[in-house]
């Protein structure tokens, strides 16, 4: 199995996504309030820059450590599912390109957008989807790590996909797959706040020196 073949397939599914556009059968975006994610401005009264950066990252950690995010940053080869973070059913594995195994790729079930499931299990209201649906590479595994460890990991180009701090902030603030966390489809709890508020927390954290929590 060549990685290029898999990537070719991934490219195809992205093309399908583009063609589908505003596909019907796609979950309507839910109205999420920022009530449970404090805006960066709330941290301005912290005068110590390092302490403020740590506080900002801890707030952002409510998103980063949410099962919606960690489930696809597993420590092993298998994604997790649900708020209980149980192993994914059906059993799937990351494969060479983090998009599944040949014959059962992520795209075998996950399309370019969330899909509502109609009149089936009340515990499966939708199948999540995104044009870029895939697992975070193993070096970006977050499962089982403390927020401090994740913070150091995010800053380390060897473990963040070779990104600069600015690129990390940009990724967190605007990446579409990251944004899926705020629009995870019917029957799924979204991560707190909005991507905009989260992005601003990350931006200020970086601007304040990107200090990490101790644990």
């Amino acid at each position: 199995m060549s990685v290029s073949r898999l990537l070719f397939i991934a490219g195809l599914s992205a093309a399908v996504a583009a063609a589908a556009g505003l596909a019907a059968g796609v979950s309507a975006a839910q109205d999420h309030t920022a009530a449970t994610l404090k805006p960066a401005s709330d941290f301005e009264q912290i005068t110590d820059k390092t302490a403020r950066a740590v506080a900002l990252f801890e707030e952002a950690g409510k998103v980063i450590q949410h099962p919606r995010c960690v489930n696809c940053h597993p420590a092993g080869d298998k994604p997790l599912q649900g708020m209980g973070m149980h192993p994914h059913q059906p059993p799937v594995a990351r494969g060479e390109a983090d998009i599944g195994m040949p014959g059962m790729m992520c795209g075998t079930c996950h399309g370019p957008a969330n899909v509502d499931v109609v009149a089936q299990a009340e515990t499966i209201k939708s199948i999540p989807g995104n044009p870029a649906w895939h697992l975070a590479p193993i070096e970006m595994a977050w499962e089982g790590r403390s927020l401090g460890q994740i913070c150091e990991q995010i800053k380390d180009p060897a473990r963040n996909g070779g990104k600069t701090l600015d690129e990390i902030v940009e990724h967190m603030a605007h990446d579409d797959l990251v944004g899926w966390g705020w629009d995870p489809g019917a029957g799924r709890e979204s991560v707190p706040g909005t991507q905009e508020v989260f992005g601003e927390l990350m931006r200020r954290w970086a601007a304040d020196g990107a200090a990490c929590p101790k644990a």
Partner: peptide, 18 residues
């Protein structure tokens, strides 16, 4: 489009041009 897909959770709208 050449890849296995579960048709039960594939809305026909997603199949345009495929």
């Amino acid at each position: 489009d050449g890849s296995p897909r579960r048709s039960c959770i594939t809305p026909i709208s997603m199949v345009e041009g495929s």
